[in-house]
Structure formats: structure tokens, C-alpha cells
Design a protein around this nucleic acid. Structure first.
Length: 754
DNA sequence: CCAGTACTTAGGTTG
DNA sequence: TAAGTACTGG
């Protein structure tokens, strides 16, 4: 137990309270994760069974890091028995076990945000509502915040104040959309992210026996980032902890930056009401940053009215002043900072990974990317599109999903005509209407068209039939083949692999590689699982949590030593020796949309606090006086946040040179000239290839499988397949130059060769 | 069915 | 500016 010696007195007190409710208010950089991991280890050393511990985090990454640290302290085998993970993954696991109690199949699909928005769009269209008024984003956020406050669709429709809100915004039918959305999800055997928490609440409240079972299981509960929990999460924790009240929550009200998503700081402030005999621990010593940084951060956060009193302090050295950097434009901001980093690297032997650029919006990354490339500084952008959200990955996953759960409407819509198999929008819309009329799923309609009075022409019927048969044949292999073999089989037989392989553009090659990477991931997953259980791993096992995965933890080796570019939200929980907070301007940071209310402005200020407290050694605040936004130049003023910092901590720089405005005008002009010539050449080429051919309809009948043809754009090719009846014959033609294409003969103007 | 064009819209983002 | 969707002509 010598590890307890590594803790300061308050950390130690917090780590060694075994029983009873407790709250830890942990200032930035005060060793919050350390307390959590040490406390769990301490519990286990004091004979608390690891099976009785539940540890909830906000991100996969946080859960992963904590697991890793604990397994180093107490050994891997014991630490595996702790239920540790995000709210969503833990409660999805419980819902799959208890699925019968809420009427869902155990292999229910988890809809991600894209699926959700797509379904909302479909419903808004079906109900004949104005899609300008009922934008997917707006509808989704209304539904989501209702769910996070445990308001069901029925409750929503009966709440006077909510109805009044929707009436005043003109969206009187929003409650009906919510109702239909829930019923569609239920029919499809699907839950969205918010449902995972909502249904857990329903499960626990309607089934006292289930509640008791998990209360007895989770005798010790720990919650990280408590300031970011919403009402739905709060109530789950409260219910589970009600029997033993061995609950430990850790958070920092000053770092609450997700209230726009339903997070509720009140949960921290109300803790003492729920558990009057709780113990409060404050971690106030910052081990991360210099005095100047800590003091500057304190001086800015003191402008917020709503906060728990605490004094964050540090015993670290005073350190350098915080530099305030002015630029004339966003491009110059990038160049100045790139130069600065270049110099520090040379003078102080710093690594790339010691630097981070933090911005308010993703769009700001561009000028830095350009400047870093020019100086050959390696960088990595965090955020953006994750691996599992890429189109090709989602497509293949949709095949897996539909195979596991035939009623998954969003999966079916995604792939019924990908790769192109001639089941178009018209057919799909007709099937959807039919399914709604018969209160069933599209799958059922397509599987049994006759019994639902669904008719279409024989060609389409055949295509639908072979699609259904294909999925069924995959389904038959769910329990006979292992995950990797079936996944590979589906990728091949569905035509996805071929479709991507035929695209030889650089983007197409990347897509093909991504599919290979997904297959590799499944293979790795199978191996890691089967080692433990010695059973065959099935595709459904892989599918279970795939919607909850993010690729934050899939960092590649070659990405290790790079400058980090990310939004401040993404930087939460991280630290860097050198931090550049950029675009510190009014209307950008704080964001324009936050200026209407005190609460939103205070959240921006907390965001700034988070940004500043990421820095260990040196922080730079940078602003530009003009910035390119949405296609034109806007002039900017420095942010109020700079003024709010006590001046004694700042070193305000006056720009010495206008790097971008006057340097090398000749080169710029030359580049521009080259660009123009290049464009002109391209246009000429394009014009010269356009030929005007007359097409003779009588020739169409002469085209057979194997006929060699010429196409005005794709060049020479060979007919592989013919589908449909005249005059709507569709030909599949293989062009050596551009791959396989499907063309309607009456439009394609094919020239018969030979 | 495919591909090009006209038009719209723009925040931060864990699961 | 850039990206995404809806429409249209071949």
C-alpha cells in the first residue's frame, strides 16, 4: 500500500473513504484521475469484491486509461471484473441482458446520430411537414432534450408549457413527430443514444426486482466528470445507489462545458440534498501548470457568478507570462505561430507533441495546416469524421446490422440499392408507405409483398427477391461462421468490395483500404474475445458495441510525435507544455450565439478556463484583426476574455513585421499565373473531347451481353449484363479505364464497335 | 441510371 | 468558401 504515499493529504482522505456518499471537487490539474484509480485499488485491497464496483466515465478514452492504470496497480485479472465504462456502454450491456422486460430484442440496433437524423427526415416528409421548419437538427435536439429530462412522447404531448413553446416557434406537430419517431424505432428494434439512458430508467422504475438486483450488484459506484451528467443519468445513479449509498462523484463545476447537450451543473449543487451526511473533499492544489497560468485562470473564472467556492493554487514555479499575440489576418496568425513553434523547437529541444493549437471551431484549423506544411512541421488534427462514420464503413456495417436485425429500417434504406441493384427511390418510397399502412416494417413488406398488397413490376420484384434471399443467406450463417469469415463473405457477396475495388481514384483506393481495415478490426476482435471464452466469436458479438465506439483510442504509432490541432471541447482532460489558444476574438470566442444570455456566456468562459488550464509551461493567446469567414473578410476585435485576465500575468506583444502582407509578392503572383494557365488547359481538353453523336434507336436491340461498345466519356467497354424490358433496358458495362458502370441504354448513346 | 449544376446554409460534440 | 442536397438533361 505504499502507493498511498504518493498522495497529498486531501487526495489521500478522498481515496480512503470506503463507505458512504462522497463528492470530490477537483480543480484543473489536481489529480482527479489519480484519486479515482487509487480509490478503486484501495477498495479492492480492503476486500471489496471487484464485481461489486461500477465506475462510470464520459468517454471511452477516459475509461480505457483508467482501466489501464488500475490493472497496473492491482493486476489485470482482478481489474477485469470491475464494470467500468461510459454510461452508454454499461447500460446498453444491461439493457441487452434485461431486454425482455422492455419488449426489445436482445440484439437491438443502436442508431447513431446519422441514423436518427435520417429517420427524422423520413418522418417529416411522410407527415407532409415543411422541412425548412422541421429541420432534422432542430427536431433531434428537441427530442433529445426531452428524453434527457425523461419526458416521453406521450408526456411531451400533454405538457402545456412544451406545447406552448412549439406553438410559438410554429412547430405545432413536433410532438407528433416525436411519437412517430419512437414507434418507428421500436418497430425497427432500435434505440438511439438517449434511449439507452431513458430505457434504463424505465427498466429500473418499472421492475423493482431488476432494480434490487443491480443495487445489490453495484454496491460501490464511482462517477467521473459528474458536472457533465444530465438528469437522466443522474436518476439512474441515484436509483442504483439508493440501497447502499456508497457513491463517489468527482467533478469540477468550473469545467462544465456541455450544458448545451443537457448536462446539468445542478447535479453537483444538489448532491448534498440527496445525501445530507455526505463528505466533501476539495482538491485545490494544481500539479500541472505554472503560477502565472493558474492565477490567470483563476482571475478569469472569478467573473462567473455561479460556482462552488474553491482556491486552486500551485507550488510550481512562477513561469513565463502569458503571451498575447496580435495578427492582421487568420493566415498571418497561422504563420506567426508556426514560426514561434519552429523557434522554440530549435532553442529548447521541445518535441512536436509538446505543442497544441486549441480553437473554438473546427474551421479555424486551415490556416495552421497551411503554415505548418510550409515549415515542415508534422501535425495531427483531432476530431472531424471518425472511422466508423465514413460512408463505406457505415455501408458495410449496415449489411451486418440488417443481417442481425431484419427490421432495422435505417440499415435497409442505406444498402437496398448499394451497390446499385436497380431498386430505386420510387420503389423504396412505395414500400415505406405500404409498411406504414400495414403497421409493419419494410423488411416484412419486401419479404412478403403479396400479403401486404405490395405490387410492382416483375423485374423489380425479382430484384427485391434476390436482395432478400441474399440477406437471409447471410443470416443463416450468423451462428455457423465466425465473425471474420462472415464479414468477409458479406463484403464480397454483397458486391461492396468489388464496387470499391473498381474505383481506382485515390479516394476510392482509400475507401477500399478502410474496408480492409474494418475486416482486420473484426479479425482482431475475434481473436481477443475467443482467447478468453474459447468459443466461436460471431458477427453479432462484434456488432453489439460498434455504434458506441469512437476512434479516439486508435492512435497510430506514426502519429505520436505531432503537433495537436483540436477544438477546446476535444482537449478536455489533456495537457501540453505549450498551448496556443487561437482566434480569441469577440463573436468567435465567445461565440456570437452565446451572447444572448448570461448562462451561455458563462459556459464560454468555462470553456476558456478549460483551454487555459491545459497548459503546463507556457500559454499563448492569439487574435487576428481580420478573418476570412464564410467567403468574405470580417474585421474582429480582441475577446473580452483577454481583458478579464489580470494584466500582471500578461505579456502583450506588438507585432513587429507584417509577414504575410509584404513578403514575396512576386511568388504569389507567379503561383496565381500558373494556376490560371493550368485551368485554361483543362478547359481546352474538356472541350476537345466532346463529340456530337446522333443515336439511332434501332441499334439498341443489337446490344447483347459481350458486345463491345464505345461511350463518349468512359471510352471503350464491354457489356456484362442486361436488365429490364425495352425501352428501359439497363446495361452493366465494364470500362477498363473507369470500372464497371450501369447505364440506361436509351440515354447512354453507346456506339457499337465491330 | 449517371453526372453535372443550381441552390442552400453555415456552432461547439461523448455516446 | 465549402459541402451537401435537389433537380434536370442525356
Amino acid at each position: 500500500m505504499n502507493y498511498l504515499d504518493e498522495l497529498n493529504p486531501s487526495q489521500k482522505e478522498a481515496s480512503t473513504q470506503i463507505d458512504g456518499p462522497m463528492m470530490v471537487i477537483a480543480g484543473a490539474g489536481s489529480g482527479k484521475t489519480k484519486v479515482l484509480t487509487y480509490r478503486i485499488s484501495y477498495l479492492i485491497e480492503n476486500n471489496i469484491d471487484a464485481f461489486n464496483i461500477l465506475a462510470l466515465t464520459f468517454t471511452n478514452k477516459a475509461a480505457g486509461e483508467m482501466k489501464h492504470r488500475i490493472s497496473q496497480m492491482i493486476g489485470g485479472n482482478e481489474s477485469k471484473n470491475i464494470w467500468m465504462g461510459t454510461f452508454h456502454s454499461i447500460f446498453a450491456r444491461i439493457l441487452r441482458i434485461e431486454h425482455e422486460k422492455i419488449g426489445y430484442p436482445s440484439n437491438f440496433t443502436i442508431y447513431d446520430t446519422q441514423d436518427t437524423k435520417s429517420l427524422i427526415k423520413t418522418i417529416v416528409k411522410e407527415m407532409g411537414l415543411d422541412d425548412k421548419l422541421y429541420k432534422p437538427n432542430v427536431v433531434y435536439s428537441r427530442i433529445s432534450s426531452a428524453k434527457n429530462n425523461l419526458i416521453s412522447a406521450q408526456d411531451y404531448l400533454s405538457r402545456v408549457e412544451i406545447m406552448a413553446e412549439d406553438r410559438s416557434s410554429g412547430r405545432t406537430r413536433l410532438g407528433d413527430v416525436y411519437l412517430e419517431y419512437q414507434s418507428r424505432c421500436f418497430k425497427s428494434g432500435a434505440m438511439d443514444f438517449d434511449d439507452l439512458l431513458f430505457k434504463t430508467n424505465v427498466l429500473l422504475h418499472q421492475n423493482p426486482d431488476v432494480l434490487l438486483k443491480y443495487q445489490n450488484k453495484f454496491k460501490y459506484i464511482l462517477v467521473d466528470e459528474y458536472q457533465d451528467t444530465n438528469y437522466s443519468q443522474y436518476l439512474i445513479i441515484k436509483s442504483l445507489a439508493a440501497r447502499f449509498e456508497n457513491i463517489c462523484v468527482v467533478g469540477d463545476d468550473a469545467q462544465s462545458i456541455y450544458s448545451f447537450r443537457g448536462a446539468n451543473i445542478e447535479n453537483i449543487l444538489n448532491f448534498k440534498k440527496d445525501y445530507p451526511d455526505y463528505n466533501l473533499y476539495k482538491l485545490e492544489q494544481n500539479y500541472r501548470s505554472t503560477q502565472n497560468i493558474v492565477n490567470a485562470a483563476n482571475s478569469i473564472i472569478s467573473n462567473n457568478k455561479n460556482q462552488i467556492e474553491k482556491k486552486v493554487w500551485t507550488a510550481n514555479e512562477e513561469g513565463e507570462l502569458i503571451t498575447v499575440l496580435k495578427s492582421f489576418s487568420d493566415n498571418e496568425e497561422g504563420k506567426q505561430i508556426a514560426n514561434d513553434i519552429f523557434n522554440i523547437k530549435n532553442n529548447e529541444q521541445a518535441n512536436n507533441l509538446d505543442f497544441a493549437i486549441l480553437y473554438r471551431t473546427n474551421a479555424q484549423s486551415r490556416s495552421f495546416e497551411e503554415a505548418f506544411r510550409k515549415l515542415n512541421l508534422p501535425y495531427k488534427i483531432y476530431g472531424g469524421l471518425s472511422f466508423y462514420q465514413r460512408k463505406e464503413i457505415k455501408d458495410l456495417l449496415a449489411y451486418f446490422r440488417l443481417t442481425a436485425n431484419n427490421n432495422d429500417e435505417e440499415a435497409l434504406k442505406r444498402i437496398i440499392n448499394y451497390p446499385k441493384r436497380g431498386i430505386g427511390k420510387t420503389t423504396l418510397d412505395k414500400a415505406l408507405v405500404c409498411a406504414n399502412q400495414n403497421k409493419t416494417t419494410i423488411w416484412n413488406v419486401l419479404e412478403n409483398p403479396m400479403s401486404f398488397g405490395f405490387n410492382c413490376n416483375s423485374g423489380t420484384a425479382n430484384k427485391i427477391d434476390s436482395f432478400i434471399s441474399m440477406i437471409k443467406s447471410f443470416k443463416a450463417q450468423l451462428t455457423t461462421k465466425n465473425a471474420f469469415d462472415l464479414a468477409h463473405e458479406i463484403a464480397k457477396s454483397s458486391g461492396v468490395l468489388n464496387d470499391l475495388y473498381s474505383d481506382r481514384t485515390p479516394e476510392g483506393i482509400v475507401r477500399h483500404e478502410n474496408i480492409q481495415e474494418l475486416l482486420n478490426a473484426i479479425s482482431e476482435f475475434s481473436e481477443s474475445q475467443s482467447n478468453e471464452t474459447n468459443l466461436q466469436v460471431h458477427l453479432t458479438d462484434f456488432l453489439i458495441d460498434v455504434a458506441l465506439l469512437t476512434d479516439a483510442d486508435s492512435e497510430k504509432e506514426e502519429d505520436k510525435d505531432k503537433i495537436s490541432l483540436m477544438t477546446i471541447h476535444a482537449a478536455k482532460g489533456l495537457e501540453f507544455p505549450y498551448v496556443y489558444i487561437v482566434g480569441v476574438e469577440e463573436n468567435l470566442f465567445p461565440s456570437q450565439l452565446s451572447l444572448n444570455s448570461r448562462t451561455e456566456l458563462e459556459e464560454e468562459r468555462r470553456l476558456f478556463y478549460v483551454a487555459l488550464t491545459r497548459a503546463k509551461k507556457k500559454a499563448v493567446l492569439s487574435y487576428a484583426v481580420s478573418r476570412y469567414r464564410w467567403g468574405n473578410f470580417t474585421s474582429c476585435e480582441p475577446s473580452r476574455f483577454i481583458e478579464e485576465i489580470d494584466e500582471q500575468f500578461l505579456d502583450i506583444q506588438v507585432p513587429t513585421s507584417k509577414i504575410s502582407t509584404f513578403s514575396k509578392p512576386n511568388n504569389v503572383r507567379k503561383d496565381f499565373a500558373n494556376e490560371k494557365i493550368y485551368n485554361t488547359n483543362r478547359n481546352l481538353k474538356k472541350v476537345s473531347t466532346i463529340k456530337n453523336q446522333k443515336l439511332d434507336n434501332s441499334d439498341l436491340d443489337k446490344i447483347k451481353i459481350g458486345t463491345e461498345v464505345n461511350h463518349e466519356k468512359f471510352g471503350k467497354g464491354k457489356v456484362v449484363q442486361l436488365l429490364g424490358d425495352t425501352p428501359n433496358v439497363k446495361a452493366t458495362v465494364y470500362f477498363p479505364s473507369s470500372g464497371q458502370k450501369q447505364l440506361l441504354l436509351k440515354f447512354a448513346k453507346l456506339q457499337i464497335l465491330n
